[in-house]
Design a protein around this nucleic acid. Structure first.
Lengths: 182, 182
DNA sequence: GCTGAAACATGATAAGTATCATGAATATAG
DNA sequence: CTATATTCATGATACTTATCATGTTTCAGC
């Protein structure tokens, strides 16, 4: 592949950013049914996307952390199908939808990077599903380790791993203890 | 959006198909580390993508059922990073990678449809993750119902729902029984 | 109308985890 | 260096589900 393809799409988007917005915890980035005018990349903090149904039920669609693109699919919609709320103090980069779609149409390199980004997101989301469909903490941890085999564990970050693999921190500590050599 | 955008990308790919391949159960569609020359859409049956590590561990990357595109991310790779095996008698449509990338470069409508397809896949894979991170059968079923609220349940298909939400069929039947009015 | 296969259904048991509690080890700020 | 918060750690209990067993219903094909 061409060398230019190695640049990260998210970095590219950040470089293209036209604005920056800061949100207090609990503040909305956008509301369900409002018009889609821009795409956002989380600079710091986290945005949670939640869809509410008429019957009152709700479901989380995405938990977008640092350097995540918020609601990729919104690019292809006129209105948002979910609310976006900052779950902690958060700042985001903003690129207008017009700019984004313009680049996509005119710059085939940009289009390629965007598709590549999406394809990878698909892959990692699917892997997460497979990990979460495993029943025991041991199996899920094995899956997590098998997936990101390059960069091993994390120091002081096990708690966040617990969240990722959908188990309580306590259960993960116990599993880790079991694996520690005597 | 333009009306042409409503056509399904998968249907488009099927129409473009240059070949069709039939696989017996357990047959390989491709192997890890072999060159990527084509993309495949499942016509009938199912393909399971599994990645094996040096240490012997493995993880399922995708379970591609009818009308699923197999290993979207392979389009942006020279070699496959996983094995693809038919888990039942399966037939697939084949489109060469060259044709695919050519269309992407020259036909902006095709590119748009491809990105749109990927964005939707990202979304549904993320939703599945959120559902699977819920702990009880009741919560997962609620999530499943909240997600595909349009077309309700399924007749004679509850068992497959059980697989999707990662619970045993028995547990799902019990939950459904609880919800049935006296 | 049979027949075999698959879905549907429900009971009993074992296993694994969430949760609550409580405390030690670390880190971070002042 | 001390205060305070966070991670790390481990125990006990209740709850939920996987699994095995067994039986009923449904339905396509003959």
């Amino acid at each position: 592949m061409i060398s230019i393809m190695n640049i990260d799409f998210i970095d590219l988007l950040i470089a293209m950013a036209e604005r920056r917005r800061s949100l207090k915890q609990e503040a909305f980035l956008f509301h369900q049914d409002s018009a889609v005018n821009a795409v956002y990349v989380v600079q710091e903090g986290a945005i949670e996307l939640t869809r509410y149904q008429e019957d009152g039920s709700s479901i989380i669609l995405q938990h977008a952390g640092r350097h995540s693109l918020v609601a990729e699919a919104s690019v292809y919609s006129d209105v948002y199908h979910c609310h976006a709320v900052a779950v902690e103090p958060t700042s985001v980069f903003e690129v207008s939808k017009a700019t984004f779609l313009g680049c996509f149409r005119e710059d085939s390199e940009f289009a390629q990077l965007w598709a590549q980004h999406l394809a990878r997101e698909v892959q990692s989301a699917r892997v997460r599903s497979e990990i979460l469909s495993r029943k025991t903490v041991a199996d899920r941890l094995d899956g997590w380790l098998a997936w990101r085999n390059e960069d091993l564990p994390a120091k002081g970050q096990w708690k966040s791993v617990a969240t990722q693999i959908g188990v309580s921190a306590e259960a993960l500590y116990r599993e880790l203890a079991k694996r520690r050599p005597a």
